[in-house]
Write a protein that binds this DNA or RNA. Structure first.
Lengths: 241, 241
DNA sequence: TACTATGAGCGTACACTGTACCATGACCGT
DNA sequence: ACGGTCATGGTACAGTGTACGCTCATAGTA
């Protein structure tokens, strides 16, 4: 067990009493800390899936004993909560200084990208009920953007629900698809889907799969299409102040 | 171990050779069968959450030994797949003989209701990649409805993605909310949310929570609002044959 | 009726999980 | 020098999915 200890900078200690635990939180590359534990947990889940994430393996990846993690995380549940909040931290906030549609489009695109990078996050959301700080900050920024664009409180709520539903639902569907690019889609459709879709039982699905392959359908463009449709549909709800 | 054996109806045996295993599949209230195993698994997950569903507990609920389940299900993964497909079976297909918007509204409302009854299903979808038979039948019916309404293959695909994203995403968000009714929302907002949303840090969220409570906001109506907005936005994509 | 093949049911065992409890030993302030 | 604090992790326990192989009721055959 190679445990390296943080050297506390003197002036920090001079300013106010700092517990050893707090010092750890600041330390970035030495010793353990809640940061380091959660970040490594995210990395592990990205690599091996959420089922491959066990306290023992996580501890192993950190060069520590399993029980040590419980000094930074009360339980695995809390660890999962913290992991989700890290994911929310990665999502871009809607930028200020542009029209609301551009701002929301940007943050939606960012959210989709982040959720695609951490597919396990979607599946975890269902079971955790209380939003973390990054989640709250994100919601605040989004609501601010909508309200400043002239949406009433009620309409901003509607817009929020609709946009988030679309983004999460899209990410959820995307996570359960075995292809990403147009090339992979064409490949899988011809070799896997079409044989499973006999035209007498699934005439329409068969037709769709065949036609989409022929047209060179690219699933990567799907997200923007629906997003812009939703944004356009929301525009009239705005009390154009 | 009270194992009751199926009495095979003679005329069934006369018609063609039927293995004992197949007879079990048909039997509804005696012995085990894949049906019975999966249905009981769904019930158990509804009652105790998906984390409370273990092979041993499921076996216990069926009055059987743990290893007996593996005669009907190759692995727990396959069990989970089958459970999801049962959920899809519960969702109403879009009815024929009405305009496409009414049909899609009906099936979307049904889907939301079913997913709200089985919240664990949403969290499971992320990890399973191959759709079951009920899922395929459902997709076929939806695509048929859209194509008959005059959507091209490509536009029907867009509509499908958008509608499903909305439904799944809404269900996902709903599953992670601790309230259902307007009364519960008002209660929780005042006692739990507002204290966590200091106006200097979260001015807009604070304002929203307060205003929504004052207006008697009912989260149950939220779904239809967004759904109708989406349906209206899709209408112009239709090549009104 | 006796014999055999089949296959449902499940007891046992193994590697693994989350985590409660407790011992260790380094660091700090006095 | 000493006592208190606290990060660390070893051990243990209940519970997990499931591989293996046994029992024994049944169906089919002779």
């Amino acid at each position: 067990m190679t445990v390296r200890w943080t050297i506390v900078k003197p002036f920090e200690r001079a300013r106010r009493p700092v517990s050893a635990r707090e010092q750890r939180q600041v330390a970035s590359d030495a010793g353990l800390s809640k940061q380091r534990v959660v970040v490594e947990a995210v990395r592990l889940a990205d690599r091996e899936g959420v089922d491959g994430l066990s306290m023992r393996r996580l501890a192993g990846a950190l060069g520590a004993g399993a029980m040590s993690l419980y000094h930074y995380v009360a339980s695995k549940e809390e660890l999962l909560d913290a992991m989700i909040d890290i994911v929310f931290e990665e999502i871009e906030l809607p930028p200020e200084g542009t029209d609301w549609q551009s701002a929301m489009r940007r943050r939606a695109v960012s959210a989709r990208r982040v959720l695609a990078c951490h597919p396990w996050a979607i599946g975890l959301m269902e079971s955790r009920t209380s939003p973390g700080p990054a989640n709250l900050r994100h919601r605040e920024a989004v609501t601010a953007c909508l309200r400043r664009a002239g949406f009433t409180v009620l309409m901003a709520t509607h817009a929020n629900w609709l946009l988030d539903s679309y983004v999460y639902g899209f990410a959820l569907q995307e996570a359960s698809l075995p292809f990403d690019t147009a090339y992979e889609f064409a490949d899988m459709a011809e070799d896997v889907f079409l044989p499973q879709l006999p035209p007498d039982e699934f005439p329409y699905l068969n037709e769709s799969a065949a036609a989409l392959v022929a047209a060179g359908y690219d699933p990567a463009e799907e997200f923007i299409f629906g997003l812009d449709l939703v944004l356009a549909a929301l525009e009239p709800l705005r009390a154009s102040a």
